[in-house]
Each structure stands twice: as structure tokens, then as C-alpha cells.
Write a protein that binds this DNA or RNA. Structure first.
Length: 293
DNA sequence: CATACGTCCTGGCTGC
DNA sequence: TGCAGCCAGGACGTAT
């Protein structure tokens, strides 16, 4: 399941592989994978002939700034309207972007192909078909098309994601802290794996109501989320999932989940069996002894 | 406004 | 061996 560190790993790979290369054309194998425009052929026609100038990440969204092939490499900027539009991607559950030789045999779950020079191809493979791609037209705010960007909370590494901010957003709230961490409006990029790991390191139960956390606990959770995400990025994404980077390589995040996917197994600290409960429709894993706060 | 829940989807796994 | 049923979960729409 690609969360922020996996998406960032993909962004870096895309930047390396495709920046300043022109999109020669493409093929949409599953129309549903194109969220905008409605017609898959319009999508391909819109981006064909433009070059990928720069890849950005916002939460778990990827955005490529498009440009004319003869344009200078633009300065890195913000996600703002540009004269040649954007290409947006969300991998959701099982999406993969693979940089392949064009003749590579089509995977069963290949959904979209984007052709590049020298017989290279960026291929979107997605078993569960939740992943999506958008074309953002010229001079249009990406958030007007990729509506999920509108409500997205602060990036975890930004100054906006401060303890003060989190304390304010937790005050008088009753929902479990685990649910809050998964809410992309609160903070962008966390998912089930890193939320569970963050709460383990913070010694806080996933069920703990936000409003009952002390300021110290909130600061601990904030700092641990940042740490967990940074370490996972440094490792090139997680091993425990089907995640692949653009070169088809699995991540290297130590294979060292404290609790995620370890229900019934002994806690790596105290030996007690890791418990699994359902929160916000997902599995939450925690150690009943270590996470007593 | 805050919170909860059903929905989309495919394939792997479990248990009978 | 076959197969029904459950599980995985990001984000969105709707209900309370």
C-alpha cells in the first residue's frame, strides 16, 4: 500500500527517468483509470507531444508539470496553473508506475501506457483498479480537477504541521487518534502502516480519543510520525507490501514493523501478543502492554 | 461541524 | 478439490 514514503520514492524515480522527456503517445487499457477528462483518447491527445518538466508530490498525489518540448527546464515551483497543464496520478491501493522497455510483455493488470523516446514506456499497473490519472488543462488550478487536493492537510515535514496545529485540531475531538492520523485533512500522507508504527513508538493506544491526549503526547506522536516517514523515505519505501519503485525494486524499510501485520505475534519489546482491532474500517495493530497510554 | 460507515475492486487465504 | 466467504484499504459520498 503506497503511503507518503512510497509515493515519494516513486516521485524520485520518475524524476530521474522521465524529466525533460517528451510523451510520444500512449494507450489506455482501462478507461476507468482516467479520472479526467472523460474520454481516454482525449487524455492521450492532450498530453501527447508535451514533455515532463518536473514531478511533484502532495500527500499521496503525484503531479507532473508539463511543458513544451523546446522549453527550458523550469524552476521548481508550486502546484499552480501553468501554460501547459499537469499530469496527476494517485496509486491508491495497488497502483504501480513502472519504467520499462516498450516491448515488455503486458502485465495482467496493466491499465495505462505512456510512450517515451528510445522505446521506453511509463506503465501504470494496478490490480485493484482504484488508482487514477488526471490531465489538468493549461492555466487551471490542479485542485479544480484533482479535487482531493482541496481539503488536503499540511505536509508532515512542513512548518504548518506543528504541535500547536495538532493540539488545536485534537482539542474537544472524540474520535480515536488512529482515525485522525488516517484523515488526510488533518495531515497529508499517512496510511495504515505508518499510523500503527507511529502510535507504537508513541506508546499510545490507537483507540485513544484525540481530546484526551496531553500536549506532550501529541508532540510525541507528531515527532514520531515525522521520524517514521523520514526513515521510510531514506530506505526507499516499505518492504512489507507489494510496493515497487519505478525500476520494479521493492523498498528496504528494514522489514521491521513493530506491530503492522503482526497480530498474535510477540511484541518485539515485551513479548505480549500484538492485538488487532477494527478502527475506521481498517485493521489496527497494537501492543496492549507497551501502548498503555 | 464532527463523526461514522458503505462503496468501489481483485485476488489470496481460510474453512468446510 | 471446489467454492463460498472474508479480508486487504484510500478516498469519497452520504447519513446521522
Amino acid at each position: 500500500v503506497p503511503e507518503l514514503p512510497e509515493v515519494e520514492t516513486v516521485r524520485r524515480g520518475l524524476q530521474q527517468a522521465t524529466s525533460n522527456l517528451a510523451i510520444a503517445g500512449g494507450d489506455v487499457l482501462l478507461d476507468r483509470a482516467i479520472a479526467y477528462p472523460q474520454s481516454a483518447s482525449d487524455f492521450i491527445a492532450a498530453i501527447a507531444g508535451l514533455k515532463v518538466a518536473q514531478w511533484y508530490r502532495r500527500g499521496k498525489y503525484l503531479l507532473a508539470r508539463l511543458d513544451r518540448p523546446d522549453a527550458e527546464t523550469p524552476d521548481p515551483g508550486e502546484l499552480v496553473p501553468t501554460p501547459h497543464g499537469w499530469l496527476g496520478v494517485h496509486l491508491r491501493m495497488t497502483g504501480q508506475l513502472l519504467w520499462l522497455p516498450r516491448h515488455t510483455e503486458l502485465q495482467k493488470h496493466a491499465r495505462v501506457r505512456l510512450f517515451f523516446p528510445q522505446e521506453r514506456e511509463l506503465r501504470f499497473v494496478d490490480q485493484r483498479t482504484f488508482g487514477q490519472m488526471w490531465w489538468i488543462p493549461p492555466d487551471t488550478d490542479p485542485a479544480a480537477i484533482v479535487t482531493g487536493l482541496q481539503q488536503l492537510g499540511p505536509e508532515p515535514f512542513s512548518a504548518d504541521f506543528s504541535t500547536d496545529y495538532l493540539v488545536r485540531r485534537c482539542r474537544n475531538r472524540t474520535r480515536p487518534i488512529k482515525n485522525a492520523l488516517l484523515d488526510q485533512r488533518l495531515v497529508a500522507g499517512a496510511g495504515n502502516i505508518y499510523a500503527d508504527e507511529t502510535l507504537f513508538l508513541s506508546r499510545v493506544r490507537p483507540t485513544k480519543p484525540c481530546g484526551e491526549l496531553s500536549e506532550g503526547q501529541i508532540e510525541t506522536i507528531r515527532a514520531n510520525l515525522v521520524k517514521v516517514l523520514q526513515q521510510a523515505i531514506a530506505a526507499g519505501g516499505t518492504t512489507f507490501s507489494s510496493f515497487l519503485d519505478v525500476q520494479g525494486i521493492n523498498g528496504n524499510y528494514a522489514g521491521m514493523a513493530w506491530t503492522y501485520g503482526r497480530a498474535g505475534k510477540p511484541c518485539r519489546i515485551c513479548g505480549r501478543a500484538i492485538e488487532r482491532i477494527k478502527l475506521a474500517g481498517r485493521s489496527s495493530h497494537f501492543c496492549p502492554r507497551c501502548q498503555s497510554l
